[in-house]
Simulated assay, not measured.
Amino acid sequence: MDTASQPVQLGPSTPSLVHFSGNSKDFFGIWIVNLLLSIVTLGIYSAWATVRTKQYFFSNTHIDKHRFEYLATPIQIFKGRIIASILLVIYLFFTHYFPLVGAVLAVMITFLAPWLINQSFRFNMRMTRFRNVRFNFKGSYGGACKVFLLMPILCVFTMYLLLPWTLKKMDEYLLTNIKFGDKQFSAKLSTSKYLSALLITLLSSFAVIPLFIAGLFVAGSNVEDSPKVLMTLIPAYIACMYLLKAIYQAIIRNHVFNSAEIKDIAQFHSNLSVTRFAIVEVTNILAIGLTLGLAYPWAKIRKTKVLAEATAVTLMPAAKDIIDTMDSTESSLGDEASNLFDVDVSLT
């Protein structure tokens, strides 16, 4: 049993388990309506769908009977999505008809990526509220440029020897720039932990190679029978990728949560089972594929419950004195642009 399910005394307060009360039946109803209305409206309703989905998951996630709230409005999302879509169309137009201009724009987008990352995190944090206090993100362009542009380049020139340190600095940057009201998050992450997570994932990848060999035998020795081979190997490949990703994410999630705190306000705990999480991730993606996507709500709820059950938070008495310094106005442009331009960076 996860130790997160057995709270122990850690200082002035007892850890409170994160509880998720959502269920597959309710979320399936929301998901299918969102999907159908988004199709009928040619994607216009997708902004409303995004808000409905996030509000459902936030409102069903609570700590010590206090629920999270998602504050963004569909109009905020819709406006940001329109502007980001226009920018994407302009980029694709120049890339197709004027390749030189498109290349220049690609370079510009590369240097715009740190801003997009900051704006995406800032919007999502400001739209999140817990105990009537909003989160915030105070990352700078220079800081984001350093960890998301310069360090990855250094990794390439060092034949990825600096990859564990780079991944640690990325998570550290994102985490330590988050604020809860007027209080800053802090964390002491270990490069050696990232190295061990990568090595375990790498060794696991060697273990799954026989699965592909077995897949070839199952599909038949005649490689000219390509449809049969593809139907066997593609699901196996996808399952293996989710398996490896889950192994790495579970190890790093535990490390990040157990290293993070808001001084004198909260301590975070995670005891996510690597084996359990890997099984959930692999079976979820296979179920989604076999049902042509209809199992997505069940898979989403299932994964969220597993993560919640492995998580606990120790709230200190001073938590009630936090001051909410945020206003409710914020543009979603950075968040939508980062999605459209495939700038996808998240805290593990």
Rank of each mutant, 00 (worst) to 15 (best):
S332V: 05
C145Q: 04
T325G: 02
V101Q: 06
W31A: 00
M127R: 15
L35P: 00
S16F: 00
T348R: 12
V104T: 09
T176E: 15
K54I: 01
T128A: 10
A287D: 07
A318E: 10
F93P: 08
L92E: 02
F180N: 06
Q267K: 06
A239P: 15
V107G: 13
Y296C: 04
F93R: 09
V33K: 15
M108N: 09
A246G: 10
F206H: 05
M170S: 07
M159D: 04
T283E: 02
G215E: 07
R122M: 11
A337L: 08
S38A: 06
F123R: 13
F27S: 11
T14W: 03
R134L: 01
G215H: 08
F57C: 02
L42Q: 09
L233M: 10
Q119H: 14
G220V: 07
E330N: 11
V256E: 14
T314I: 07
D327Q: 11
P317A: 10
K320P: 09
D182L: 03
E261L: 04
A299W: 06
A72Y: 01
Q55V: 04
R302E: 14
D225K: 12
L87G: 15
P15I: 00
A266Y: 14
I109R: 00
P297M: 07
K25H: 02
I262F: 09
M1K: 15
L37F: 10
G215K: 13
V147Y: 02
F78E: 01
V274E: 10
D26M: 01
V274G: 03
A287H: 04
T314K: 07
L211T: 10
W31C: 00
G293Y: 07
A4S: 13
Q6V: 05
F57S: 04
L150H: 12
T283Q: 05
Y248L: 06
K146Q: 10
L42W: 04
N284F: 03
F111H: 06
V104I: 14
S140D: 14
I63E: 11
S190Y: 08
L174Y: 01
I238R: 12
N254A: 13
N339I: 05
L347I: 12
E261K: 14
G80D: 08
L233P: 11
N177A: 04
A113T: 15
F20R: 12
L189R: 14
F58L: 11
A84V: 11
W48V: 01
S192T: 01
R253C: 13
M1S: 15
Q76I: 02
